[in-house]
Design a protein around this nucleic acid. Sequence first.
DNA 1: TATGTAAATAACTAGATAGTGCATTGGAGG
DNA 2: CCTCCAATGCACTATCTAGTTATTTACATA
Lengths: 211, 211
Amino acid sequence: MPDTNKTKKRGALATKRRILLSAKKAFAKKGLGGARIDKIADSAKANKRMIYHYFGNKTDLFLKVLEDAYTDIRYAEQQLDLDSLPAKEALDKLVCFTWNYYLANPEFITLVNSENLHQARHLKQSKIIDDISQKFVLMVERLLKRGVAEGVFRTGIDPIQLNITIAAIGYYYLTNRYTGSIVYKKDLGTEEAYEERLEFNLTTIRRLVHK
Amino acid sequence: MPDTNKTKKRGALATKRRILLSAKKAFAKKGLGGARIDKIADSAKANKRMIYHYFGNKTDLFLKVLEDAYTDIRYAEQQLDLDSLPAKEALDKLVCFTWNYYLANPEFITLVNSENLHQARHLKQSKIIDDISQKFVLMVERLLKRGVAEGVFRTGIDPIQLNITIAAIGYYYLTNRYTGSIVYKKDLGTEEAYEERLEFNLTTIRRLVHK
DNA sequence: TATGTAAATAACTAGATAGTGCATTGGAGG
DNA sequence: CCTCCAATGCACTATCTAGTTATTTACATA
C-alpha cells in the first residue's frame, strides 16, 4: 500500500502543524530575530531536531509561516463574494472584513511588520505569493468599476491606493494602539474604542469614493 | 574653574552623541532584540563599556533613543505654526509635513514599530512623553474647531481619530512598501510613487473633513 | 609639576543560540 | 515475526551576546 500522506508513521503531519502554529505565535510575538528555535520546539511539544528536519532552517520556517498567513487572508477575502453585492455595500463589507480580520488574527499584522523590517527579503523568494495576490487586486478593481457604472463612486480612483488606504487605517490603528494609548492618553484597545474606529474608517472610505 | 559641562575631559558629550546616533540607526534597522550592543559601540567609534557608563543598559538606551525620536517630531510639528493659516491650508500642511517627516526620518517609523511590538513597555515608563504629546493633540483640536468656525469643515470629527488617520495613511504606506511592492507588483518606493501617494492622501483627508 | 577624577580600553564571564551528528524507536508492508 | 525507514530524541559545538571587572589614559586644576 502506498503512503496515504495523511498520517505518516508517527503523526508527522500533526507534528508539522504544531510546529507551524507555535512558530507563527513566536514570530508574531518577537519577530524573526527575537523568536527562539528552542522555545518554538518546546511549545510545539516537538523536538528541535524536527524543525530542521521538516523546514530546513529558521528563515525557511519563517517564510513558510508568512506564506501561510498570506494564503489565509487572501482565501478569506475571496469568500466575501463582493461581486454579488451593490458596490457601496460591497465596499463597506470589505472595510469591515479587513478590520475584523486584523482584529481576529493579530499575528498576521506583526508577521507582516517583521517581514517589512527585513525589506521583504523572504517574501521576494516566495513562489506562491504572486498568484494569490493577483486575484485580490482584481477583485477591488472590479468593485470600483462597478461602483462607477452604478453611479455611486467617482471616477479616477486608483484601486491600489484605495486598497492600501483601507488596509492602512485599520492596520496602523491596531499595530500602534500601544504607543497611541500613551500619546493620546486614552485606551485605544477597548471594545468600544474598536467599534468607534471601525465606524470612523467606514466614513473615511465612503467619503473617499463618494461622487 | 567649574566644569562648563559642554565638553568634559575627553569628548564625553560627543561620545554620548555618537552612541545615540549609532543606537538609533541600529534599533531602527534591527529592532530592540536584533540590534547588537557590540556593533553599536563599534559604529559609534566608542567602547562598549561607555554605553553602560552613559546609559545603564540596552533597554534604557532604547528608551532614550525613542524619547529623542518623539521629542524631535513633536518639536518639528510645533514649528508649523498652523494657527496662523486658514484651516484648509493648515490641514494640508499637516498632512504634507507628516508624510515628508516620515520620509526624511525613516528611523522614527521603525523605532515606533519596534516599541509597539513590545506593547509600549518602555514608553510607558517615560516621564517626558506626556508633556510633548499634549501640545500636539491640542494643536489639531484647535485646527478642527477653527475649520468649523470658518465654515469649511463639518462638525463632529474626533481629533484623535483624525490624527491617527493622517498618520496611518502615510506611515502604513512607508512601512509596508516592501511587501506592498510584491503584492501589488509595482515598485512603491520610487520618487513618483511617493508623489502619487501624497496626492492621494491629501484627497483622502480633504474629503474626510469636507462639509 | 603633581594629583584627582572622569573618560576610555581590554579581557573576561555566564548563559544563550542556531544548527548538527548520531543513536533509537515504532509502525507499516512483506 | 522481521525488516526498513521515517520519525524522534539527545548530546554536542562553535559562536555570539549582554553585561562586568580591573586597569589605564588624559586633562583640568592647584
